[in-house]
């Protein structure tokens, strides 16, 4: 019996949309809300040894789907919404070596790209994002301004930011402000 219908609303559904800042076509920043598929938080069990390979098997096969957050902690992300059956199947792959919970209701992904994207993010975080220090696939949990976020490089000029749902729109606005000198196209979910 359902007393009320749950309303699924994308975290960034009402976020600012459109073109902002100066018009520098070759340096333009693109900000894009990614599908709210799955965000699995995985924690290694106590005294289980190295479970990196097991955790890697939880990914959907796409590059950078498995993101280390700290010792024995990962986020496994993807565009697909996982059913209860999918979750049980993935849990089995961990074979009791860790725990796993879908946090897709609580964390959202934002893609940011452009030739000067490192300069944009450097306004908010102290992490060295230079390509040599921070190659594609590298992740860092850090602060962007006062907002906690996981930054992952997905390409030479592209990053993904994983942020708590309640902070997503604030961060979105800040990323637009940080990108104004290059010009920015902001694309929230349609």
């Amino acid at each position: 019996m359902v007393d009320f219908v749950l309303l699924h609303r994308a975290a960034l559904a009402g976020a600012r949309s459109g073109a902002f800042g100066t018009s520098m076509p070759e340096k333009r920043i693109t900000l894009e809300a990614l599908p709210e598929g799955h965000v699995l938080q995985v924690l290694a069990g106590r005294a289980t040894g190295d479970v990196t390979a097991l955790v890697a098997s939880l990914g959907d096969g796409k590059a950078q789907s498995v993101r280390p957050v700290g010792p024995g902690q990962w986020f496994v992300v993807g565009d697909a919404v996982l059913s209860t059956v999918d979750m049980a199947e993935r849990k089995a792959r961990l074979s009791g070596q860790g725990s796993m919970a879908d946090q897709a209701h609580g964390r959202v992904r934002i893609a940011i790209s452009g030739t000067d994207v490192e300069a944009v993010l450097a306004k908010g975080t102290a992490v060295d994002l230079n390509l040599c220090e921070f190659p594609a696939g590298r992740s860092a949990m850090t602060l962007i301004g006062h907002i906690s976020a996981l930054i992952t490089r997905t390409g030479e000029h592209a990053f993904e930011i994983l942020v708590l749902r309640g902070f997503a729109e604030s961060l979105w606005d800040e990323l637009i402000e940080m990108s104004l000198e290059f010009g920015v196209d902001a694309r929230p979910p349609v």
């Binding site: 700290g70 102290a126 992490v127 850090t142 602060l143």
Partner: peptide, 18 residues
Amino acid sequence: MASLIACPHCGPRPKEEF
């Protein structure tokens, strides 16, 4: 962001993260 602490897991980070 003057004071940097070299976290053994994350590398140098500003004290504001701690």
